[in-house]
């Protein structure tokens, strides 16, 4: 059943025990993400040194998909360069919104692609990624 693919174990695990779920004490980039339609909220904090993500954390409230997606994102992008992040973000978001198969290995993010069968929930899965991209556009500080 499709419901089982949406709420598969890896997603439920990240929802229950989100990784990197904290505000960084020291960070260079941050952004708030908000979906006014359903109230999902995500804040991401990045510590970037020499174009590389040294540390990342998030806080937020929202549905299982939005929170699990943020958690999985944080786990994956650590040590990525900004360019690598932007590329992965693009692949992942297109994987959810476009009808083309993904030819790159996106690791554990694969699990989230089942959200595609639930069009109303795609925004939940992409919220963290949009927020991450916004944080990279924002003013550096910290």
């Amino acid at each position: 059943m499709e419901l089982e693919s949406l709420y598969q174990e890896v997603i439920m695990d990240h929802n229950k025990n989100p990784r990197c779920f904290h505000k960084l004490s020291e960070y260079t980039h941050t952004a708030d993400g908000f979906n006014p339609l359903c109230g999902d909220k995500v804040q991401v904090y990045l510590l970037i040194k020499d174009n590389k993500i040294v540390d990342i954390g998030f806080t937020g409230v929202g549905c299982a998909i939005s929170q699990a997606s943020a958690s999985m994102m944080c786990q994956i992008v650590k040590n990525y360069t900004i360019e690598e992040i932007l590329e992965l973000s693009k692949i992942f978001r297109e994987g959810l919104t476009k009808d083309i198969p993904i030819d790159k290995d996106i690791g554990s993010l694969e699990a989230l692609l089942s959200v595609k069968k639930f069009p109303m929930r795609v925004k939940c899965a992409t919220l963290a990624w949009h927020t991450l991209e916004n944080s990279l556009k924002g003013e550096k500080h910290g």
């Binding site: 419901l3 949406l6 709420y7 359903c38 929202g62 549905c63 998909i65 929930r121 939940c124």
Partner: peptide
């Protein structure tokens, strides 16, 4: 503490 959004998706099924 199930998020209402998730409840709605499950109901929809």
């Amino acid at each position: 503490r199930i998020h209402p959004h998730d409840i709605s998706t499950i109901f929809d099924s």
